[in-house]
């Protein structure tokens, strides 16, 4: 039986291969939900799904696509938005 604090499923379980060759069960915190587009709600591409302590150490260019509204809107919605702005 696992220790009482590990019996709930609030932590995710990760099998880690240790140097001796055994695979050991480790408990880690769950990842945050996937980032979504602000207008249509689809899952954004090019945005990593990591906890804040990992995101802090990443360079800015790894964290979102490098275009206007990158990391906020999906590519389709940005096209629509820019088109609408130019036609005004």
């Amino acid at each position: 039986m696992p220790a009482p604090r590990y019996r709930s499923r609030s932590l995710r379980r990760v099998f880690v291969r240790v140097p001796s060759g055994k695979s050991v069960l480790h408990y880690r915190k769950r990842k945050p939900s996937k980032p979504t587009c602000g207008s249509c709600g689809t899952i954004l591409k090019g945005v990593p799904r990591e906890r804040p302590f990992k995101m802090q150490n990443m360079p800015k260019t790894f964290k979102r696509p490098e275009r206007p509204y990158g990391g906020v809107l999906c590519s389709k919605c940005t096209r629509v938005k820019i088109k609408a702005m130019t036609r005004q």
Partner: peptide, 10 residues
């Protein structure tokens, strides 16, 4: 023209 896609978008 106005570029819509990529890092030069807008």
């Amino acid at each position: 023209c106005v570029k819509i896609a990529g890092r030069d978008a807008g």
